[in-house]
């Protein structure tokens, strides 16, 4: 599902060149849950954004579902992202003025004429958010927000789920819910790449890789 070959990313900043990733190669098959562990600043988020078609690599190759998103036009890449990749972030990035239902439905905006409301409600029910369906993020607990974000990531039935510290801000109970969902997603022939420095998360992964200073150990 996901192949990364010699992926490098260099940032040019005012303080000089920063090598965020250096010749990273890995693969995640369908039904596989891979965790990448590493301390802060090790390049985890850069890896995730590069895999997600959001950050053009300085070198190397990324293939998702047999397609290199960086060979596509920006519009096609956006469409590819919407249809193939799901994102879950530590900061949730929920839209503050939208209800739980609308937040879950946001990915459907990428597809004109999309009717995803039943799928959204199904996910909301699955994440035990039915009684919060009309609430805006400001009225939700941290766990509820992350569950909402997870539901949103799964709306379009992605093939690859990218999770950036999905349980970093959660208590054990909520973390277990989220990680169970990721595991469940992987078992239903999805591929999960999770970056985290949380040991709880690593327990659910089929494979755990260590990233340090932009290099896989």
């Amino acid at each position: 599902m996901l192949f990364i070959k010699n992926l490098s990313k260099v940032f040019k900043g005012p303080k000089g060149i920063v090598q965020a990733l250096e010749s990273v190669s890995l693969s995640v098959k369908a039904s596989e849950f891979v965790a990448v562990q590493g301390p802060s600043g090790s390049g985890k988020t850069t890896l995730l954004l590069s895999v997600g078609g959001l950050l053009v690599p300085s070198d190397g190759e990324v293939t998702v579902d047999n397609q290199n998103p960086y060979l596509m036009s920006p519009d096609n890449r956006a469409h590819f992202r919407a249809s193939t990749i799901g994102f879950a972030f530590q900061q949730f990035y929920l839209v503050p003025y939208l209800s739980v239902l609308d937040n879950v439905l946001v990915p459907s905006l990428a597809f004109p004429q999309s009717i995803a409301i039943d799928r959204a409600k199904e996910l909301i029910n699955r994440f035990n958010l039915t009684d919060r369906i009309g609430h805006v993020p400001g009225e939700l607990s941290t766990g509820e927000r992350q569950r909402t974000a997870m539901a949103r990531a799964l709306l379009n039935n992605p093939k690859l789920l990218l999770a950036d510290e999905p349980v970093g801000n959660l208590d054990n109970e909520n973390a277990n819910i989220v990680l169970s969902v990721l595991e469940e997603f992987a078992s239903s022939s999805g591929a999960v790449l999770m970056v985290t420095h949380d040991n709880r998360a690593a327990k659910y992964a089929h494979k755990t890789l260590q990233l340090k200073n932009g290099k896989l150990l």
């Binding site: 956006a78 919407a82 249809s83 990035y93 503050p96 946001v106 905006l109 990428a110 949103r152």
Partner: peptide
């Protein structure tokens, strides 16, 4: 919000 909308596949 712009960042997440783009990440979730909304075009420019």
């Amino acid at each position: 919000e712009i960042g997440i909308l783009s990440a979730l596949g909304l075009r420019s």
